[in-house]
Amino acid sequence: MTAFPWGAFGVSLVYSAIAPLTITLLTFLVALAKGVHRIVDVAWGLGFTAIALVTFAASDGHGDGTRRLLATVLTAVWALRLAVHIGVRRCGHGEDARYERLLARAPGNRHLYALRVLYLPQAALIWLVSLPVQAAQYATGPLGPAAAAGAALWLLGLTFEAVGDSQLARFRADPRNRGRIMDQGLWRWTRHPNYFGDACVWWGLFLLSCVTWPSALVSLISPLVMTYVLTQGRGKAVLERHMADRPAYAAYAARTSGFLPRRPPRTPLLNRRTG
């Protein structure tokens, strides 16, 4: 096994920083034209796809070819599914309530404030979280047990996220469920199957990059940061504060795991109306 190519990897880090920044700035221009900043969420998935493609091209001649292709495909499949899902869900709606509250605190120009506190930090976070994908492109050595475990964990995560999103979309589309708490399907096992799935995807990609100690150490920050963001940052914590004023949510939270899936109780939750 040859040494990790730090020089080539360092150059690739620059390319991979430019990719999500370009996607983010283009998204910002579209948001200005449309007058809403909710589409910044679509750029999240597109940014990861751009990094996967750019680093795959930049790493030509380095790393294991199968691992490079696998890392690129797994990242792009996850990221594009998420971008399409968010785009379809937000299509035709006004500004996201979260961003309305945020922009209401803008000390000056709302759009420049959004660029500074939404778009640019998101581009930086995409670059940081994508480190396993970038490292996997340069990791030498054939695929082994860690890569197989990573691919399996990625598949588990994608399944949880995609199925959870689909179940929630069908639930919300039924007018009879207006004001009710989603407590069916995977949502009986965890209050956040989509966030749990996200975490599994990135721990899986981390395992895919774990060939040498350098690549493992470079990649480890990614799943740690992503798990923190999902559980304590913009994910679970923010959503649960928003849901806390719904009477039925307290009962749902008391009997359903907050993150890791757990066998649901035998007695179904009485799904009461919340307004």
Rank of each mutant, 00 (worst) to 15 (best):
R255C: 01
W78Y: 13
G164A: 10
P247F: 04
T212L: 12
V218K: 01
V11A: 02
W78A: 03
L13D: 08
I23C: 09
L70Y: 11
R234P: 15
L82H: 10
E95W: 03
A139E: 04
F9I: 04
F196A: 07
A162R: 08
Y113L: 02
M1A: 10
A104C: 08
D245F: 15
A58Q: 07
V84H: 03
W213S: 02
T159K: 00
L220M: 08
I126F: 10
G157V: 01
V36K: 08
T231S: 12
V84A: 02
L143S: 10
R272I: 05
L29W: 14
L143F: 13
S222C: 12
S59E: 11
T22G: 14
G141N: 12
A169S: 12
T140C: 14
L69C: 09
A139H: 01
R116G: 13
P145C: 04
D60S: 11
N109M: 07
F171K: 00
G7Y: 11
W187F: 12
D183F: 03
H93M: 15
V163H: 03
L158P: 09
R90I: 15
A19R: 00
C91F: 14
L270H: 06
V201R: 01
I86K: 03
R178V: 02
I23Q: 03
G63R: 01
A199L: 09
A50D: 02
G87R: 04
F206A: 02
R255T: 05
R188A: 15
S215G: 06
L260V: 15
A104R: 12
Y195V: 07
A237H: 09
V54N: 00
L239T: 04
R67Y: 10
Y99H: 11
A162D: 07
G179K: 03
T190K: 05
Q137T: 05
G185A: 05
A152S: 13
D198R: 02
R105Y: 07
